Simulated assay, not measured.
Amino acid sequence: MNTPPDQSPFVVSFDWLKSRIGETGIKIVDASWYLPAQKRDGATEFAASRIPGAVFFNQDKIVAPDSDLPHTIAAEADFARAAGELGLSETDTIVVYDGPGMFTAPRVWWLLRTFGAGNTYVLDGGFDAWKAQGLPVETGTPATPSPARFNAMLNRQAVTGFDQMVSIVESRSSQIADARGPGRFTGVEPEPREGMRSGHMPGARNVPFSVLSEAGKLKPLKKLRLTLEAAGLDLDKPVVTTCGSGVTAAVITLALQSVGHRDNTLYDGSWSEWGGRDDTPVVTGEA
């Protein structure tokens, strides 16, 4: 894959994907997911139109079934079964997209890579822009995927759990990068999930996921590095990413990986877990 020198090695362009639609071993995944306030439904939109050959990854259903949190990472066997039912194999070249671009696709990019699909990429730009540019769109009832075998092997070092997060907050052994918007981070705006405290973890830095992209495309690498550093991150030190429920935290993960930062993990429970408890420290105001 010939990646331009200032582009992330983990994204692909519209032109790249358009020329490969239908090729053997190229799989396309719609990972669109929305907050209630956005008044959009990923599954409904997928059923109406999609990039030709795409399958829909339901981020509310391919999760740990016994968790009371919204997006807890699934067990290996459960993820393998779900990915296989979508026709995905860990050896495929997989391109993940969402509606606006650089919103929820990075979460599924992270999940697939974390379970062993090393040739997974994010479509730069998103499906909204793809349609606006008149690129190929498939409508009508989506085809049922041909089942495949996905050999899932979870990289546990990529995931931070609650007990680890408590230790990180207490010891400051890793930087914390929070992808939520400034209002939720500072506690000025309420959380969208009822009954949850607002604010952030002690020591966290606010890196709103939206500042890492422009028009649905991940920023060029130089800009990306400057944006991360401007948020207060030292790119020579460990980082754990977090957000509301573990979805947009992956946008920061994608940005970090893109600029060559490898010592990073994603806090899977994120604020749904931390802010939903009454025994965790919460800070309001600026970091």
Rank of each mutant, 00 (worst) to 15 (best):
M1H: 14
Q7A: 13
F10Q: 01
V11M: 03
W16V: 11
S19G: 06
G22T: 05
G22Y: 07
T24I: 01
T24E: 13
I26D: 02
V29Y: 00
A31C: 07
L35H: 04
L35N: 03
Q38G: 00
G42D: 00
G42N: 08
R50H: 10
R50A: 04
G53H: 04
V55P: 02
F57H: 14
A64M: 04
A64Q: 14
D66F: 08
D68N: 15
D68Y: 04
I73W: 03
A77C: 02
A77Q: 15
A77G: 03
A77P: 03
D78K: 12
D78E: 11
A82R: 11
A82C: 10
G84K: 15
E85W: 06
L86Q: 04
L86Y: 07
S89K: 06
T93P: 00
T93E: 08
I94R: 06
Y97M: 07
A105G: 08
R107C: 09
R107K: 15
W109C: 05
W110M: 05
W110R: 12
R113C: 03
F115Q: 05
A117V: 13
G118F: 07
N119L: 05
D128S: 10
A129S: 13
K131S: 09
Q133D: 13
E138T: 06
T141H: 01
P142R: 11
S146M: 06
P147A: 15
A148Y: 07
A152G: 13
L154P: 06
N155S: 14
V159F: 05
G161I: 04
D163K: 05
S167A: 15
I168K: 01
V169W: 01
V169K: 02
E170V: 01
Q175W: 03
I176D: 02
A177G: 08
R180I: 07
G181Q: 08
P182G: 12
G187K: 11
V188W: 05
P192L: 06
E194M: 09
G195L: 10
N206K: 12
N206L: 13
V207D: 03
V207W: 08
F209H: 02
K217P: 04
L218S: 07
L218T: 05
K222H: 09
R225E: 14
L226G: 06
T227F: 03
L228A: 05
V239Y: 03
T241N: 13
C243N: 05
S245K: 08
A249V: 11
L254Q: 02
Q257A: 14
S258H: 01
V259H: 05
R262C: 01
D263T: 12
L266H: 11
Y267G: 04
Y267P: 00
S270C: 11
S270N: 08
W271F: 15
S272D: 02
E273P: 00
W274C: 11
G275H: 09
G276D: 08
P281I: 07
V283R: 13
V283H: 06
G285Y: 01
G285M: 00
A287H: 12
